[in-house]
Amino acid sequence: MDLNRRQFFKVLAGITALTIAPKKSLAYQGKFATLIDLTRCDGCKDEPIPRCVKACREENKHRFPEPQKPIMPYWPRKTYEDWSDKREKIDTLTPYNWLFIQKVEVDGKTLYIPRRCMHCDTPPCVKGCPFGALSKQPEGNTIIDHSICFGGAKCRDICPWHIPQRQAGVGIYLKLMPKFAGGGVMYKCDLCDSRIKRGEEPACVVACRERLKDRAVYKFGPRDVIYAEVKNRAEKEDLYIYGDIQNGGTSTFYLSAIPFEKIEAKLKEMKARFQMPVTVKNLYKEDINPWGKVVLAASVLGALTGIAGAYISKKKDEEVV
């Protein structure tokens, strides 16, 4: 497995941008947002797979990881994360399932909550990645460049919802120091980036509307229009909003007839893998150990430079011969 020059320079560009760019360069609200109406979601309980989940998996299956086995643990860990034998698991987030429906019983009522990346206005995952593998797009979504992700899981650690999921045995770390650096590649919802760049809606939005028509759970559109509708409905229908202020604001807004404090309390009681905290501290607005990031990035860049240099030199020698 050869490390190509494009990957090397993409990592270099990402590190440079993150270590010297001002904070405001990453902090902006996107053009689009999603409304998720919990008063309308029934989890597609009469179908084998919720429509939105099925559509998400179908849309992204060509990007799902195919790990090289046997997978070796990397120092100092003695374990690794491998979901490849659980590809059909749809009741949680995995590298093969970027959207799931969380079922919660609150005050005698059953809630079905679609869970995926919130696509924050000021995403700490973007700043926290030492190698620039994550970026916030002008459309408002946050994406992971799988070709340069080392799977260090910093993004998951600083995400208030711990959304990104890791698959070992794939990615650039295998080309560098598979026993000492990285741990795979991180995966999450990117809001169907290629679709929205073509002027189309995310697959989950389309699938839900095909089933529920004008009572669809999801609504996607310009951020200011969506937020205006969220505020208006919350006031008129006595509903509660989630996602407007959490983590400094996001591009995903939930509406619920039940207070999110009660939902949060129930999820804590259930010891659910994915929580829904009402009070969310945004680490983006604090120092995420910038010097530590520079040191880490420099050490790996040094190794990358040596490998890339040797590879390029080898290619030149082969061309001369």
Rank of each mutant, 00 (worst) to 15 (best):
P50L: 01
W98F: 14
G199I: 09
K179I: 03
D121F: 01
E105L: 04
T34H: 03
A17T: 02
G132C: 13
R273K: 10
D37G: 06
T279V: 11
P130D: 10
E201Q: 13
Q167C: 09
M72E: 13
D107T: 04
R51N: 00
F100G: 02
C120H: 10
E318P: 03
F274L: 07
A21G: 07
I20H: 02
K285R: 10
K314Y: 15
M186D: 05
K69H: 10
F253R: 05
K293S: 12
C56I: 11
G128D: 06
D37P: 01
I241R: 06
W98Y: 14
E264M: 14
C159Y: 14
R115G: 04
L239C: 01
R87E: 12
P202R: 09
R233C: 07
Q137C: 06
P114M: 13
C159L: 15
Y187F: 13
G302F: 12
I158A: 06
I241G: 09
D2W: 08
K262Y: 04
R209F: 04
G128H: 00
A153C: 11
K61T: 04
L18W: 01
K231M: 13
I101W: 02
C204S: 06
P124M: 12
E318W: 11
V206C: 01
D42W: 00
C149R: 07
E201K: 13
G30V: 10
I20E: 03
D46Q: 11
Y218H: 01
E200C: 00
R233H: 10
S313K: 15
V126P: 02
C52N: 12
C192A: 15
E286R: 10
D121T: 07
L35R: 03
P277I: 00
I307L: 15
R195P: 01
H119M: 12
D317Q: 13
N97C: 13
K262T: 05
T16Y: 08
E235S: 12
F32E: 07
S313W: 15
P123N: 11
T142Q: 12
Y187W: 08
L255A: 05
Q68Y: 07
F180C: 07
C120S: 13
I226L: 14
R5A: 08
S313N: 15
E261L: 00
Y218M: 02
A181R: 06
Q68M: 11
D121V: 07
L191P: 01
R5P: 03
G151H: 02
W83K: 09
G182R: 05
A203K: 01
G151P: 05
V106C: 06
G30W: 09
S299Q: 14
L283S: 07
K127C: 04
L35M: 07
Q102R: 09
A298H: 12
G43E: 02
G183T: 06
I172L: 15
F9H: 13
P130T: 06
P222S: 14
V104K: 01
T122V: 13
A207H: 03
K69P: 03
I20P: 05
G249D: 05
K89L: 07
K86Q: 12
V230E: 02
P164G: 10
W98R: 13
